[in-house]
Computed example of a mutant assay.
Amino acid sequence: MDSLDFADLGKSAITREVLGEARGGSVVSMHPGHTGTVEVLAAVSDGLRRRGLRAVTVAELVRT
Score class of each variant (00 low, 15 high):
residue 7 A to L: 14
residue 8 D to L: 04
residue 29 S to T: 14
residue 32 P to A: 11
residue 51 R to M: 09
residue 63 R to I: 03
residue 26 S to D: 10
residue 55 A to Q: 10
residue 32 P to I: 13
residue 1 M to V: 11
residue 56 V to G: 13
residue 37 T to W: 08
residue 33 G to V: 11
residue 39 E to Q: 15
residue 63 R to P: 03
residue 47 G to E: 00
residue 41 L to T: 11
residue 8 D to R: 13
residue 48 L to Y: 06
residue 56 V to C: 10
residue 4 L to T: 06
residue 40 V to Y: 06
residue 52 G to C: 08
residue 4 L to M: 13
residue 40 V to A: 10
residue 63 R to T: 10
residue 34 H to T: 06
residue 20 G to E: 02
residue 41 L to Y: 03
residue 62 V to C: 05
residue 58 V to A: 14
residue 23 R to E: 11
residue 26 S to R: 09
residue 61 L to T: 02
residue 48 L to T: 09
residue 11 K to V: 14
residue 45 S to A: 14
residue 12 S to N: 07
residue 21 E to V: 02
residue 5 D to W: 00
residue 28 V to M: 11
residue 18 V to T: 03
residue 62 V to F: 01
residue 54 R to I: 03
residue 41 L to D: 05
residue 13 A to P: 06
residue 9 L to K: 15
residue 59 A to W: 08
residue 33 G to E: 11
residue 24 G to L: 12
residue 60 E to W: 00
residue 61 L to M: 04
residue 51 R to N: 12
residue 40 V to L: 09
residue 39 E to D: 15
residue 15 T to K: 14
residue 22 A to V: 12
residue 61 L to I: 06
residue 34 H to N: 07
residue 35 T to C: 04
residue 57 T to E: 02
residue 44 V to A: 00
residue 11 K to S: 12
residue 50 R to Q: 14
residue 46 D to A: 13
residue 39 E to A: 15
residue 47 G to S: 02
residue 41 L to K: 01
residue 11 K to L: 12
residue 11 K to A: 13
residue 30 M to W: 01
residue 58 V to P: 12
residue 33 G to L: 09
residue 6 F to H: 10
residue 19 L to T: 07
residue 19 L to Q: 07
residue 40 V to C: 14
residue 34 H to I: 01
residue 47 G to V: 08
residue 36 G to I: 12
residue 29 S to Y: 13
residue 12 S to K: 15
residue 61 L to W: 08
residue 52 G to H: 02
residue 29 S to P: 02
residue 35 T to S: 08
residue 7 A to D: 06
residue 50 R to F: 03
residue 48 L to I: 10
residue 52 G to F: 09
residue 55 A to V: 15
residue 32 P to D: 13
residue 25 G to I: 09
residue 39 E to Y: 04
residue 35 T to G: 01
residue 5 D to H: 01
residue 35 T to R: 13
residue 10 G to D: 01
residue 49 R to K: 15
residue 3 S to C: 05
residue 20 G to V: 07
residue 41 L to F: 09
residue 36 G to Y: 05
residue 47 G to H: 02
residue 12 S to T: 13
residue 17 E to C: 11
residue 57 T to R: 09
residue 44 V to K: 02
residue 8 D to M: 11
residue 35 T to A: 12
residue 11 K to F: 00
residue 57 T to A: 07
residue 1 M to E: 04
residue 56 V to P: 07
residue 60 E to A: 09
